[in-house]
Design a protein around this nucleic acid. Structure first.
Lengths: 207, 207
DNA sequence: GGCCTAAATGGACTATAGTCCGTTTCTGTG
DNA sequence: CACAGAAACGGACTATAGTCCATTTAGGCC
């Protein structure tokens, strides 16, 4: 997966020529949309029944009644499929950050928003640990290529810059998100339980 | 790899019965030792020539003139092989921590030793990024199963407990090591260069 | 030196991810 | 409506990790 060539249903707006003029990406074909939905439904079903690790891509393709080629071309690889499933569930959190009530949404001091973000993100992550783990660890660097990661990172960087003027916010945001990696949280929770794990991560947030 | 059933040449001390009485692990057989050395040499050679990612386990087995079964039984999986190669190079750092001069070794205040450790670890990591990456990301959770990780974690936990009495040092040490993951540092360095990457990680160290 | 047991060996075998490309299906246009 | 080109399809194919077990070998003991 080289970037965001995969994923995400495209908008069904604009006539063909207008779209072209606007430089919008071409609309997704009807059969493609249908297959995307079939695959996501099949994957959700299988993952729920047998666990994320117990399901092969062949199995997903079969369950979705779709060829393997289709599956891979659309989602890139297994981590892409997991990311697509997570995506739906991350929307709510992203909206709450952009326009929900403080301290998660705008309005509270940056430091408080940062703490609220970490808490809310952990809530989300601990609810979908296995899916997140698959999306992040299927291949090296996978985590950082997911679109959602960029969102979290940008959000954290903006808050850091506001709370600590003069700090090198961009790489710092990266580093701050590192302990939130699914692989890491899996181990931390297994070893110390959710409460201590959560506290340890929160203790690293500046201020 | 369930634990440390693999790796590490065993000591050649003690007679058979004494060893048994002492509960030491059985001495490694001569052919096993020979093959371990052949594999490590072959892997080092191939990795240097073609890069860690460009070498299959089949290729390592062939180059070492050893069966695939031998290779896997001894090293568990690809990450185990990479870890075994790294191991040799980590010894120096571990010794410097245990008995070298301050601030890395004993003698300096805990906070200073912590900073010195992060610096030294990053030196080591950036020198062997590809090998470390393979050892940590070949399978989910691989990083946390490597013996060396336990060493770093214990060291950091002890220093944290000393520098910040009352903090929950064990999980905090885990969290503090998260940004030092090879996969994360690879991205951070690629995006911002070694200097800013290093600074960002150091900024997270308490105090 | 020859025997015996546990350890080690190696390569055939399985399972799975991911690629490739000839065929089929859309959809905008005349 | 029918045509043409683009887009999507699907399954055979390749590459690789990792398992299994019948066979071989080391080395302690007499």
């Amino acid at each position: 997966m080289s970037d965001s060539e995969f994923n995400g249903p495209r908008s069904a707006s604009s006539s063909e020529p207008l779209r072209t003029l606007l430089g919008e990406p071409p609309r997704e074909r009807a059969d493609a949309a249908r297959n995307r939905a079939k695959v996501l439904a099949a994957a959700a079903r299988l993952f729920r029944e047998k666990g994320v690790d117990g399901v092969s891509m062949d199995a997903v393709a079969a369950e979705a009644e779709v060829g393997k080629g289709t599956l891979f071309r659309r989602f890139g690889d297994k981590s892409g499929l997991a990311a697509a499933l997570l995506d739906e569930r991350e929307r709510g959190l992203q909206e709450a950050i952009l326009s929900g009530p403080p301290p998660l949404g705008p309005g509270a001091p940056a430091a408080e928003r940062l703490a609220a973000f970490v808490d809310a993100y952990l809530d989300h992550l601990l609810d979908h640990l296995d899916l997140a783990r698959m999306s992040e660890t299927a291949s090296p660097g996978a985590r950082y290529r997911i679109g959602a990661y960029r969102f979290w990172r940008l959000h954290v960087a903006i808050l850091l810059a506001e709370a600590h003027p003069g700090c090198d916010a961009d790489p710092l945001a990266h580093a701050l998100l590192a302990p939130l990696a699914a692989d890491h949280m899996t181990v931390l929770v297994a070893e110390y339980g959710p409460a201590r794990a959560r506290e340890a991560v929160r203790a690293l947030v500046p201020e």
